[in-house]
Design a protein around this nucleic acid. Structure first.
Length: 422
RNA sequence: GUGGCCGUAGCUCAGUUGGUUAGAGCGCCAGGUUGUGGCCCUGGAGGUCGGGGGUUCAAGUCCCCUCGGUCACCCCA
């Protein structure tokens, strides 16, 4: 065991595994841009108050999972536990023209015990649309996430949607639910029997049987929605229908961050809950000192998306390695170090080229060439060098083992031909 | 934060009731092959047995602590 290791709950992602990351982020970036979102790069840490105001003082993310510390200037700082708060803060600070549509791919930090699909540093892809309350913005955001999963080839994820109401109807419902829970407190699970009052909505998505029984008789959120919320929700569902995005309405979908209003949604499977999700957060901009503007967005965990890909056998590292490998590998047995110039020339010509170091034996260099995945080896010996020739040996593809000598000036062009053939 | 299981070579793992210099496969390096990869053969390097303490004549093996991994709960991506 080495002296230093990556901190608990963090990981090093090396090639070729890292190819899955760049592929995933690349596809998401392309999609987000196609949907009219611009990249936002925001700090990995903020004034801790930013997260307390947004996620809610009572949320677990804030109360027990924040990486919070005092910096050398005495500031109360927290490592970003989720993406929305930072983007909203940036929006308030710079007030760009609404609607402000931003995407990001960034690390998030939460101080918690690692387990399957959960880390102290994890990474999320996300988008936020700020400055519009249009239900079609909700649909757009959901459809972007749906498009991402479809693009990856994921088919086992199901979309659940719900509406939590807004500031006019949510508080009333909360009270109504609390009254109901109070009268059924003894029937709740051990965990919630005495803690139902902290956040009554939480009981709705408690997994334990006792709470599940109680909730079937509980007042329904959908019956408590005010007229505006009802209309908004109907419009969202209608929009999803028009785009043929499959969903199930889930009256019990309550997400963990306190800022959600109206629409909430989540993608998941039986094996893997919470592969991505989000919702609308009218009021969050104001909570961070901005105008009364609404917003909607989602966050999706890269690690969890990759787990889902594993489960469905898509986006595997071995598939990606084939498409991302080298064009050529320079093998130099000339004793003149000509690999330096040759590699440089080929790279300048736009080819992906690598070479061996330490003047190893030809056998060792060819072995390295083979292992690198390069399509061909460019072999130069002392005689070739003197004659201005390079030997091309095809390592992979339909014409593997083929070998030919070409003049050095024509090497890049010839390699280009070979690389394009099957 | 609570609980279960697990830490032996780069990786996957053997290692008997505690008993000599801790092993295998794969990978890596070299040679067989005087410029030619994969396959094969031969050899080699590589280990504070996660760390610390304890019990014992003797600890990879037993006990305690600790660090890490993993899984579940809580919660979440």
């Amino acid at each position: 065991m080495t002296r230093f290791q990556s901190p608990k709950g963090t990981q090093d992602i090396l090639a070729p595994e890292s190819a899955r990351w760049s592929e995933l982020v690349g596809r998401f970036a392309a999609l987000a841009q196609r949907f009219g979102f611009g990249l936002v790069v925001s700090p990995g840490f903020e004034d801790a108050e930013v997260f307390r105001r947004s996620s809610g003082d009572s949320s677990d993310v804030v109360t027990k999972e924040m990486y919070e510390f005092t910096d050398r200037g005495g500031r109360d700082i927290a490592l970003r536990p989720e993406g929305t708060a930072s983007v909203v803060r940036a929006y308030v600070q710079h007030s760009p023209v609404p609607p402000f549509k931003a995407w990001y791919a960034a690390p998030m930090f939460r101080y918690e015990r690692p387990q399957a699909g959960r880390f102290r540093q994890h990474h999320q892809l996300g988008v936020e649309t700020l400055g519009t309350g249009d239900p079609m913005a909700d649909v757009e955001v959901i459809s972007l996430l749906a498009a991402l999963y479809a693009d990856l080839g994921l088919s086992s994820l199901r979309l659940r949607v719900n509406s939590l109401g807004d500031k006019t109807c949510a508080p009333d419902y909360r009270e109504e639910l609390a009254r109901y829970l109070e009268s059924h407190a003894v029937e709740l699970c051990d965990e919630h029997r005495y803690k139902w009052a902290v956040n009554p909505l939480r009981i709705l998505d408690c997994k334990r049987l006792e709470c599940r029984k109680v909730r079937t008789g509980a007042p329904k959120l959908r019956d408590a929605l005010c007229e505006d919320c009802r209309r908004h929700f109907a419009a969202v569902l209608g929009g999803l229908g028009r785009l043929a995005i499959a969903y199930e309405q889930d009256d019990y979908l309550v997400r963990g961050l306190d800022y959600y209003t109206r629409t909430t949604f989540e993608y998941g499977s039986d094996a893997l809950e919470g592969v991505g999700g989000g919702g609308r957060y009218d009021g969050l901009v104001a909570a961070l000192g901005g105008p009364e503007l609404s917003g909607v967005g989602f966050g999706a965990g890269i690690e969890r998306i990759l787990l889902a890909c594993d489960a469905e056998g898509v986006l595997s590292a071995s598939d990606l390695r084939l498409s991302g490998s080298l064009d050529a590998f320079v093998v130099d047995s000339s004793d003149k170090g000509i690999a330096l110039e040759l590699t440089h020339e080929l790279r300048a010509a736009g080819l992906a080229v690598d070479r061996a170091f330490d003047a190893r034996s030809m056998k060792a260099q060819l072995k390295a060439a083979d292992r690198s995945g390069a399509r061909v080896a460019c072999i130069v010996g002392a005689d070739d060098l003197a004659a201005g020739l390079v030997t091309i040996r095809v390592l992979r593809g339909s014409d593997a083992h083929l070998q030919e000598k070409v003049v050095r000036d024509g090497l890049a062009a010839r390699l280009g031909q070979i690389t394009r053939s099957p």
